[in-house]
């Protein structure tokens, strides 16, 4: 008996709150017209984006045309394109040691190498994992959770855990020595350090991309496979002719996300290898950070110019993705 009036009251209260913005919205609509209402709804997001994305981009571009060590824009003298000139001063772009800013080009090439290897491995591993987890296997829910678990960890935690495993007196070396082998300096050898940087990155993020691909796999109608089976199509042919083409939109998303993340990689690798040995795993973002914040003479202008160039590279990658998506859509 008592519950009914209370729920009525609650419903009425909810309705009142829901209708509260109705009157001012109606007034705005009358003033600016229905056609322009979309902009009113977009305004909060545009303001947020403007403040935290577009304004910093503008400041970054401005800094790239200034010099000196002062932090505030008003105290920084304009130097034109000098910072870009410094970055581009190379006898050969393929040989970073011939460049004035050799660390920039080393970072670029290392990022490129890391991204190429990481993207290939990440996509293949994620795809294989998603295909297996999409099958009716025992303890499927448990395995899905296990593969996703590393995604929940902070990148620094991931790096520190693996650093403990890989250090000279770490777990992996203990196993190797225990089996009669020789201790390996995993993080002090350029080849090994790059291998582990890619491995740890794939280990930490493969769960996320597996999830995207798994969702794509589950969206493929079962009856297509049933029809294929009735036609006697072999599993490998099903994968190549049915699954992969139908999964293409999801694969494309994964490909783009992994590529952009690969180029932006910093935290995990920095905590794991510190960019070493030498500069073997120093990515472009680490160069930007070090130039601006970790050297005795902070060169904000040079770091800003490098980040503008990195931004342009990411823009090209994103545009390529849009072009690919539209081309595929049109086909």
């Amino acid at each position: 008996m008592k519950a009914a009036p209370a729920s009525n009251l609650l419903a009425r209260g909810g309705r009142f709150i829901a209708e509260l913005p109705g009157a001012p919205m109606a007034l705005i609509e009358r003033v600016i017209g229905t056609g322009r209402m979309a902009y009113v709804f977009l305004l909060p997001n545009i303001l947020f984006f403007g403040m935290f994305v577009f304004l910093p981009i503008g400041i970054d571009i401005y800094y790239s045309f200034t010099g000196g060590t002062a932090l505030f824009p008003s105290q920084r003298p304009g130097v034109g394109t000098l910072q870009y000139h410094y970055l581009a001063s190379c006898k050969s772009f393929y040989d970073p040691s011939s460049c004035r800013e050799d660390y920039f080009w080393r970072g670029m090439w290392t990022s490129l190498k890391f991204t190429c290897i990481q993207v290939s491995v990440m996509v293949l591993v994620s795809l294989a994992t998603a295909l297996v987890l999409n099958m009716k296997i025992r303890a499927r829910g448990f395995f899905r959770a296990v593969y996703f678990f590393p995604v929940l960890l902070s990148p620094v935690v991931v790096a520190l855990v693996w650093k403990w495993i890989l250090q000279p007196q770490g777990l992996l070396n203990a196993v190797i020595v225990g089996m009669g082998g020789h201790r390996i300096l995993f993080l002090a050898d350029a080849g090994w350090a790059m291998f582990w940087a890619v491995f740890v990155s794939v280990w930490a993020h493969t769960g996320f991309y597996t999830l995207i691909l798994l969702a794509g796999l589950q969206a493929i109608p079962r009856d297509i496979y049933e029809a294929a089976e009735m036609d006697g199509t072999r599993p490998l042919r099903q994968l190549l002719r049915l699954t992969l083409p139908l999964l293409w939109p999801n694969l494309l998303v994964v490909l783009v996300l992994v590529t952009i993340r690969g180029v932006q990689t910093f935290d995990e690798v920095f905590a794991l290898t510190g960019g070493g040995p030498g500069t073997a795993t120093m990515m472009i973002v680490q160069y930007i950070y070090t130039t601006a914040f970790a050297s005795q003479v902070p060169d904000y202008g040079l770091a800003a110019a490098a980040s503008v160039l990195l931004g342009l590279l990411l823009l090209v990658l994103t545009l390529a993705q849009l072009w690919l998506t539209r081309r595929r859509g049109a086909a």
Binding site: L185, L187, A188, G274, G276, P277, G278, T281, A294
Partner: peptide, 12 residues
């Protein structure tokens, strides 16, 4: 050992 000086980059 390179594991000490070699394991990081720059002036870390």
């Amino acid at each position: 050992s390179k594991a000490l000086w070699g394991a990081v980059s720059g002036a870390t």
